[in-house]
Design a protein around this nucleic acid. Structure first.
Length: 991
RNA sequence: GCGGAUGUGGCGUAAUUGGUAGCCGUGCCAGACUUAGGAUCUGGUGCCGAAAGGCGUGGGGGUUCGAGUCCCUUCAUCCGCACCA
């Protein structure tokens, strides 16, 4: 018996939705095939977004019996440019996982918030005088609207913003804990500084094994006799947050110092401004204390190998030994660090960094002038110059000699800026035969190159490999490198010249920024000594200032604040870096409104660490390393119960845009200038089609902005004569000429007759390239469900892919097809059948359940989209509109396309959100086949197919295949050498 | 230089993990219904070839009955790091 249900949609609509309906209503006249039951994604989506918000459908409960699942997206900075289609890619993936896990019975924490301190808002404030808080608020509003448009299942009741005083209260609190802690190497964890003070008071520092800056040994009596100021000065050498004079990356253009990871290729990551080395008094965090734990922890994480490698590389562990070289002329000695103590007999000179403290002391009078000159030059070189210039070998002889610890030979001491002051001891024992840098130095200055390991050709290049037998090396002769290293360390240790040592490249992180728009550091100064404020006085609110610029005396903007002090004592005027607030935000989401603690015990014990973290790989060594560091510290002080914040990390690939560039020339001020200029693909199309009026308008806007934005303009002055000669045709010649001027020009398109030739390439989507695609536009045109599915359909989540709207129609068509499954032929009425299902329908459904489930577990979202398409195609062929099939299908599809599924789910007669429905259970029984169409191959080449029962034994299959006349044809009278039958797979006949 | 990743139709991609290469979608070709199509539906579409057949997963080699998948080698592109002793 056929039973058809007509279910009518019954609800009230807001004015806004009515107006959307109205628009659809008119479209009926314009497009006659439209009718009331068509897929009106705009009104459907708005309606359910409102429903979810009103019903708090995605609110996570801190008191739940259910297992927890914590899905987090990387903290976004709400930029003024808003979201482009690349941003939501990861959010869509994590949203799908969140919705899936809810269907699977998990209590899911899926929050969102804003990392809202940052440079752009402050730069804007400097330019316009508008308070960054206002800019930030506006940007957040826009972001929120855009996010809401896409239908994410965030629990917005837990939103946090780093700029909220209630939030940075706890960022400041963590700083205070860091200030009040030191790292005990014995227990291998951070401990309260009060414990350390007790040790100093009772036994001095001789028995303290701490991670600290070098400090003199003192007894308890010494300590107790020190003044308060002296004591505090010493404690700063131990605190995990400390003030010290350090070499910093100073960026004059930004007016602030930068952390190492904020500097790329010698220029600032943001803005690309030059960075120089400068000695400044700065707050830093002793992250290096955690180097080994940060390294070891990586092995426990489910992250991509490339990110783990990047962190390992950044931490840069190397094992070796320290070794002291006595000086020939004075009592002093030089300590070096080497990973190749086996090559000790191959040392032919020592090299010190120009900044090395002994340089002045040891340089002989004869060499003084040259050395001083060299030191001055290398000091004044910017980081960028130094990096750009690695090939040039430079150095000076100091005139001094060290004594070889074993041969007692005199070894000349040089200085050279290939030796870094900041790594190891700032001094190396040069073994030119087995280190390419020492080799280049020795060749350049004609120094001896004694070989001590067999292998390679020392006349041509150094032999750096760690294999071979030791020669010319006294007690090491005949040993393999590895054994020799071990023996050399033993010997060095027994004679007391040094000891085995591990070095890390990881530097302590500079924590202060000379900026306004950041968290105030909760520190005040009493007689020049820094103290942290009392916890009860937190938060230290960001004060108002008249201007967001440094003071006339060069102090940070906070120094402008009036009457801003702590009981009459001056506050610290630097603010925290951008990564402070984002290093612990994932904890605040667990308990966002807790006024007494950064996170409550019950909350953090329930939610634990993040099960899935989704974000871009650009945070490989910055955010991800700092957050891990803080997590370990918070574990040490028992605030959190885990060592690692992010168990699984997935990096979404960048969605790229098309970049159209052209070179234009302009004749200004008597000079011809060439500009590299990005144009939108729209302008490109207009130029191509010769629509000069539209093109001219666009061009004025785009080229105008490119030229104004000189940062991105490759500006070259070209003499007019060149143009006259080249007549705009000799592009190669012009390119060559430009390259000779030192400008790297990879492509050059200057057209004649005001026609432009344009180079198309894929690259970052950005305002500067005029290629940003706004997700709002896609939502308006196709709907959020289409956007969500299309972004997933584009390819594997991790891959970078260019945005193109080519395939979006197909995805949209799929949703319309799915919609039609629930409607009758004329698409007028919702029709769902309660008829019994058949085998074919069950097979289609369960195939899809299997695939959809596996794919989400494997983060393979693109393949499940195509599985849904296959499913709908098959159900359409089967003319299936049965409840027993379509309802489970809706649940499968709902994480991807939540709005349409919710709409159809309610049309099916449900009153509760589809979100509450249980994930369908896969039954393999429905996929069982009893026959298989075997491909029959000959020597691996498939020729035809034969149908056999699946329970047929291989021997029988073989017999049947050989009996087949097609087989006889392909055998050409020969006897098969061998026949392979793989049950349910393939038959291969070997002739 | 070191490290990581990726190479498959015109395009985005897929392939039960060693078993029929090209699923799904675009694009293209043809057709149906249409006053119309930027709606919908049907068929075709890796390349060469009239067909039989041959060739095909960046290139070259190997293992195997069988290789996109495993091994060696090489090339190309992208992304990190880069004088770290």
């Amino acid at each position: 018996m056929k039973l058809k249900h007509l279910v009518h949609c019954n609800r009230t609509y807001t004015l806004f939705e009515q107006s959307l309906w109205l628009a659809d209503f008119f479209s009926i006249f314009l497009l006659p095939q439209f009718n009331m039951a068509s897929y009106h994604f705009n009104s459907i989506e708005k309606n359910w977004q409102k429903f979810w918000a009103e019903h708090q459908t995605f609110k996570a409960d801190n008191n739940s019996e259910l297992p927890k699942y914590y899905v987090l997206d990387m903290f976004p900075y709400p930029s003024g440019a808003g979201l482009h289609v690349g941003h939501p890619l990861g959010y869509i993936a994590s949203d799908i996982v969140s919705r899936y896990k809810r269907h699977k019975g998990y209590n899911v924490l899926h929050p969102m918030g804003y990392d809202s301190f940052g440079l752009p808002a402050e730069q804007y404030a400097i330019q316009t005088g508008q308070h960054p808080a206002i800019t930030t608020e506006e940007n957040i509003k826009r972001y929120r609207q855009q996010l809401d448009n896409i239908g994410f299942s965030f629990d917005w009741s837990r939103e946090v913003r780093t700029t909220d005083a209630q939030y940075y209260h706890w960022t400041q609190w963590i700083f205070i804990q860091l200030f009040n802690a030191w790292y005990n190497k014995v227990s291998d964890k951070a401990e309260p500084i009060s414990e350390l003070i007790k040790k100093f008071e009772t036994t001095g520092n001789a028995n303290v094994n701490a991670v600290c800056d070098e400090t003199k040994t003192f007894t308890a009596n010494d300590w107790n006799a020190f003044t308060e100021k002296e004591q505090q000065g010493i404690l700063l050498n131990y605190r995990l947050a400390y003030l010290s004079d350090t070499m910093v990356n100073w960026c004059p253009e930004l007016g602030t110092v930068l952390a190492n990871d904020e500097v790329k290729d010698g220029v600032s990551e943001r803005g690309g401004y030059p960075v120089e080395r400068k000695l400044m008094s700065q707050w830093s965090l002793r992250i290096a204390a955690y180097a080994e734990r940060l390294l070891q922890g990586l092995d426990t994480l489910d992250w991509t190998e490339s990110i783990k490698e990047a962190q390992r590389n950044w931490i840069g562990k190397s094992e070796g030994t320290s070794l002291r070289f006595a000086l020939a002329q004075t009592d002093a000695s030089i300590e070096v660090f080497t990973t190749r103590p086996d090559t000790i007999f191959g040392v032919s000179f020592l090299t010190l960094a120009p900044e090395h403290e002994l340089v002045v002391q040891i340089t002989t009078d004869a060499c003084k002038a040259a050395v001083e000159n060299y030191v001055t030059i290398s000091k004044n070189r910017s980081e960028r110059d130094r990096m750009a210039d690695v090939k040039t070998i430079s150095g000076e002889f100091t005139g001094a000699y060290a004594i070889h610890p074993f041969t007692k030979a005199l070894i000349p001491i040089w200085i050279g800026d290939y030796v870094l002051a900041g790594y190891g001891t700032g001094a190396v024992m040069a073994v030119p035969a087995h280190d390419s840098r020492d080799y280049a130095f020795a060749k350049h200055f004609n120094l001896p190159i004694p070989q001590v390991v067999e292998g390679g050709d020392i006349n041509v290049e150094s032999y750096d490999a760690k294999e071979g037998l030791l020669i010319n090396s006294d007690f090491l002769n005949g040993l393999e490198v590895k054994a020799a290293i071990k023996k050399a360390i033993e010997k060095i240790e027994t004679v007391g010249l040094g000891k085995g040592k591990t070095n890390y490249r990881l530097r302590n992180a500079i924590f202060g920024r000379q900026r306004y728009w950041g968290e105030p550091i909760p520190v005040y100064y009493k007689e020049g000594v820094p103290y942290v404020v009392e916890e009860k006085d937190l938060p230290i609110a960001l004060p108002e200032v008249d201007k967001f610029l440094p003071t006339e005396t060069g102090e940070p903007p906070l120094a402008r604040a009036q009457n801003w002090n702590y009981n009459g004592h001056a506050f610290e005027t630097t603010t925290m870096p951008g990564w402070a607030g984002s290093s612990w935000y994932y904890l605040r989401y667990m308990d966002p409104n807790n006024a007494n603690e950064m996170v409550g015990n019950a909350a953090v014990n329930y939610w634990q660490n993040i099960d899935l973290y989704v974000g871009g790989s650009e945070h490989a060594v910055g955010h991800l390393l700092y957050a891990r560091f803080w997590c370990k510290f918070l574990k040490d002080i028992s605030t959190v119960p885990f060592e690692e914040p992010f168990k699984k990390l997935v990096n979404q690939g960048m969605i790229q845009g098309t970049i159209c560039t052209t070179y234009i020339y302009s004749y200004q001020n008597g000079l011809n200038e060439i500009f590299k200029c990005a144009i939108s693909s729209e302008l490109h199309a207009q130029l191509k089609s010769g629509n000069s009026e539209v093109a001219n308008n666009l061009m004025a806007a785009q080229i105008g902005s490119s030229i104004a934005d000189c940062q991105y303009v490759n500006e070259v002055n070209v003499p007019f004569e060149f143009f006259a000669a080249a007549a705009f045709e000799d592009f190669e010649g012009l390119k060559k000429w430009l390259n000779n001027t030192g400008n790297s020009v990879t492509h050059l398109i200057v057209g004649t007759d005001s026609k432009f030739q344009v180079k198309m390439e894929t690259g970052k989507m950005s305002k500067r390239w005029h290629n940003v695609v706004n997700p709002d536009d896609i939502c308006t045109q196709y709907g959020a469900d289409t956007l969500r599915m299309y972004e997933m359909f584009l390819g594997p989540l991790q891959d970078a892919k260019p945005w193109s709207t080519q395939g979006i129609e197909g995805v949209h068509r799929f949703l319309k097809k799915a919609w039609r499954l629930f409607h009758n032929n004329t698409n007028e009425d919702f029709v769902l059948s309660d008829e019994a299902v058949n085998k074919a329908e069950l097979k289609t459904l369960h195939k899809t359940i299997k695939k959809a489930t596996e794919d989400i577990e494997n983060f393979s979202f693109n393949t499940s989209v195509s599985a849904f398409m296959v499913c709908v195609n098959e159900l359409q062929d089967l003319k299936c509109n049965k409840r027993e099939i379509l309802e489970p299908f809706l649940i499968l599809l709902s994480p991807y396309a939540p709005h349409i599924c919710e709409e159809l789910w309610h049309l099916c007669g449900h009153s509760e959100s589809i979100e509450k429905a249980t994930w369908p259970v896969f039954n393999p029984g429905f996929l069982v086949e009893n026959e298989f169409n075997y491909p029959i191959s000959f020597n691996g080449k498939v020729r035809f197919n034969l149908n056999f029962a699946l329970d047929m034994e291989p021997a029988e299959v073989e017999k049947a295949v050989l009996a087949d006349e097609q087989t006889i044809k392909y055998l050409e009278g020969k006897t098969p050498k061998k026949i392979i039958v793989v049950k349910g797979r393939i038959v291969n006949v070997v002739i």
